[in-house]
Design a protein around this nucleic acid. Sequence first.
DNA 1: TATATTTGCAACCAATTAGTTTCATATAAA
DNA 2: TTTATATGAAACTAATTGGTTGCAAATATA
Lengths: 106, 106
Amino acid sequence: MRRDIYQAIADPTRRAIITLIALQAMTPNALAEHFDMTRQAVSKHIKILTECQVVKQEQAGREIYYKLDTNKMKEIDKWLEQFRKIWESRFNQLDNVLSTIKKKKK
Amino acid sequence: MRRDIYQAIADPTRRAIITLIALQAMTPNALAEHFDMTRQAVSKHIKILTECQVVKQEQAGREIYYKLDTNKMKEIDKWLEQFRKIWESRFNQLDNVLSTIKKKKK
DNA sequence: TATATTTGCAACCAATTAGTTTCATATAAA
DNA sequence: TTTATATGAAACTAATTGGTTGCAAATATA
C-alpha cells in the first residue's frame, strides 16, 4: 500500500476532511455528518490520513478529536516549488498570451 | 472515472513524468527510457495527464512532444493557500515548539 | 516501394480502493 | 448496574488502477 501525502489528497472526501479539520478539530462522528456515507467509511479515510501523518489526534474521554498536521501539506508546497519558477517566468506568460491570441482568432 | 489534478499527481510515475517534461518537452519513447516499465504503460500515464490537462502536446512528424501545462499545477497551489495561512501562523509554530519539547523529554 | 520506427488503442489481469454491514470495546449517562 | 454512545476493526464487494501483450495506423528511411 502506497501511503503518502499525494495519495492522501487524491480522494475528494479526504480533501474535504482536511479542509474541515483545518478550521477546527473534530470527532469522527461530527465529521461524518458532513458526508453522504457511513461513519465507518469516514473513519477509514481518517485512518489513511493518520497513516500519512496528515492528521493528529487528541483523546477526550471516549471522543477523539482530529486536527490537521500541516507539515505534510508543506511537502506538497515544496514539490510545487520547481514548477512555480516556470509559471512565474516571462516565457511562460508569453506562451499564454500567444495561446489566448490563437483562441480569439478561432 | 475521476480525472482531476489531485488524482493525476497521486502516482509517483506521473509525478516523475511531470518533473521530466517541466525541464524539457519529450516524446513518449524518450520518456519511457527513464522508467522500468513498457512504453505503453508510460503512454497510459501520459493519456491520464492529458485528460487532466497537465500536459500539452506538439506534433512533429510522427513524433509527439509533450510539455507541461502549469495552469493545473497552479490549482494545487491555490488549494494549499488555505493551509498556508495556518502553517505560517504563530499559534501553529508554538504548537510545533511544544511538540518538539515533548519529544526531547522522552 | 519495402521496411523500420513512433505512437495510440484494445483486451486482459492482479492489486488496490472506497464503500458497505457487522461486531467488539471503552466510556458516559440513567 | 444497565443502557446508550463513540470509536475502531474485520469481512465482504464492486469499481478503479496500473501494469502487461498484441495490433493497427501513420510517418520516416533504405
